[in-house]
């Protein structure tokens, strides 16, 4: 798209001077560009090495994609086949939701006191603070599925182990979030309570808790959303819920039913997201207003 005219001519005529004046901006020196190229080269080289080491070749991808296409074709139309199977899947989905709900709630209740311990402005002791933080980090870095396997060894197969696994995996994350929320809480209400003669406990109860609770409640809801997703897969290792059915259906190549179960999960997750988004807005809005 070119436009003839005096403006264009003037601009073009002045462009040499413009380039000379802002040389650094228009063409950055080879130093910064070289650093960028080096970093980019490293990233690409590692990627290529990764592809080679992991034995990923275009031929394998192409072959797999062909089979994937076949599978996708076998998936339509998604159907539960019989009404009684649909009821079984529905019950399992309810179980999944229960696992997510109870796991999240218990984790939140347990993390509440620990969050206070890990907050720098509540417990001034550096060692307590550090130990709790590291402990929470350790708990957090073990995946939900691993926790599920451990709890299965303890309480046996079934949804109970799943709920305990969700609880453990979230406990670490909640504790960290909670302590951060407490650390960023406004000091003034605390000082207010202390100045009227309130004790240390009262200052936490009336100074910190009212500030932290809505933040925490909305985080709990957010985790409930994400845990609904985790709880759908926890059944893969035998800890209850819809995952057990899903992995079995995939293993025995019942693609239509598998697709139906996946759709059920998608719909449920979307519904939970919508509900919890509303609740979150209500909780935060009520406090702010």
């Amino acid at each position: 798209m070119t436009r003839a005219g005096p403006l264009r001519a003037t601009l073009l005529a002045g462009s040499d001077g413009l380039e000379a004046r802002h040389a650094a901006l228009i063409a950055p020196g080879w130093r910064s560009r070289g650093g960028m190229m080096l970093a980019l080269g490293g990233v690409v080289a590692l990627y290529a090495a990764g592809l080679a080491i992991l034995d990923i070749s275009p031929a394998r991808i192409a072959g797999g994609l062909g089979r994937l296409g076949d599978i996708a074709a076998l998936m339509v139309p998604p159907t539960p086949e019989t009404w009684s199977r649909f009821q079984i899947y529905l019950a399992a989905l309810g179980q999944t939701l229960s696992i997510a709900f109870l796991g999240t709630l218990t984790a939140a209740l347990l993390a509440l006191p620990v969050g206070f311990l890990a907050a720098r402005n509540v417990v001034a002791n550096r060692i307590v603070h550090l130990l709790t933080r590291r402990g929470l980090d350790t708990v957090r870095s073990v995946d939900t599925l691993v926790w599920a396997l451990i709890w299965i060894n303890v309480v046996g197969l079934g949804p109970f182990a799943g709920a305990l696994a969700i609880m453990c995996a979230d406990f670490g994350a909640f504790g960290k979030l909670m302590s951060e929320a407490i650390e960023t809480a406004d000091r003034r209400p605390v000082e207010g309570v202390l100045s009227t003669g309130g004790g240390r406990l009262a200052s936490i109860r009336f100074g910190v808790v009212p500030q932290v609770l809505p933040v925490f409640a909305s985080q709990v809801l957010y985790f409930f959303e994400s845990n609904t997703r985790s709880a759908t897969i926890i059944g893969i290792v035998g800890a209850g819920g819809i995952g057990l059915h899903l992995s079995e259906l995939i293993r025995v190549l019942e693609w239509q039913q598998a697709a139906f179960v996946i759709l059920m999960v998608l719909v449920t997750v979307a519904a939970i997201d919508a509900v919890s988004q509303r609740l979150r807005a209500a909780i935060i809005g009520r406090r702010a207003g």
Partner: peptide, 18 residues
């Protein structure tokens, strides 16, 4: 969830990192 994709892909692409 990624592990559900993995379940399906293991059947399509075979066992392994891919």
């Amino acid at each position: 969830p990624d592990i559900v994709f993995a379940l399906i892909f293991v059947i399509a692409f075979g066992l392994g990192a891919l």
